[in-house]
């Protein structure tokens, strides 16, 4: 099995980083949700904060890597303008726009994905910072913890929308 450079970067952007993001999110969500004084012992709290710190920073870093590779490596291949008479299958954006039945994939799918994806690293970084800064105090700062949890879920939703649309677009017009 051989991958072209474009397929390789598409895989890194969509599958490897996307998969890591999901993994870090599920751990972080469980950690943040259960970070309540009545749920954990002092020892358990310290251990949980250590893991939560790592999980939220991993999620933030992975989110940044995903949007940076997406915007600056993969997306230029997607939106490249085809020369006259070129095989449109090599130019996904032009290929999608060439037919009424597929143009929605670009006009709605890619247009939403490319913008909303950038919310994920910004929100995830804010959450990672709060977990790092407040540490075990978060268990007793309910309002801060709940707000961080909300931002964490929003970061995931932004990434999930981008990921789902990315998968649909790639299925219709892969970057070859």
């Amino acid at each position: 099995m051989q991958l072209t450079a474009r397929e390789f970067w598409g895989l890194i952007h969509g599958m490897v980083l996307g998969g890591l993001f999901l993994l870090a999110f599920s751990g972080g969500l469980a950690g943040l949700y259960s970070l309540r004084p009545e749920f954990v012992t002092v020892q358990g709290l310290r251990e949980r904060i250590r893991r939560l710190n790592i999980g939220t920073w991993v999620m933030a870093v992975v989110a940044w890597l995903t949007v940076i590779t997406g915007t600056y490596i993969v997306y230029p291949w997607y939106r490249a303008k085809p020369p006259e008479g070129a095989d449109l299958r090599l130019y996904p954006r032009a290929f999608l726009l060439s037919s009424e039945s597929t143009k929605l994939f670009h006009e709605f799918g890619m247009e939403w994905k490319e913008h909303i994806a950038w919310f994920a690293p910004i929100l995830a970084t804010a959450v990672a910072y709060i977990v790092w800064k407040y540490g075990d105090r978060l268990a007793e700062r309910e309002l801060i913890r709940k707000t961080a949890l909300t931002l964490f879920v929003l970061a995931f939703l932004a990434a999930a929308v981008a990921g789902l649309l990315g998968a649909l677009i790639t299925k219709k017009a892969p970057i070859l």
Partner: peptide, 18 residues
């Protein structure tokens, strides 16, 4: 033994940073 039964682990930290 839960956290509620203990003194806070550390001093109060303002919410401004968050």
């Amino acid at each position: 033994m839960t956290l509620r039964e203990h003194e806070p682990q550390s001093g109060a930290l303002p919410n401004g940073a968050a």
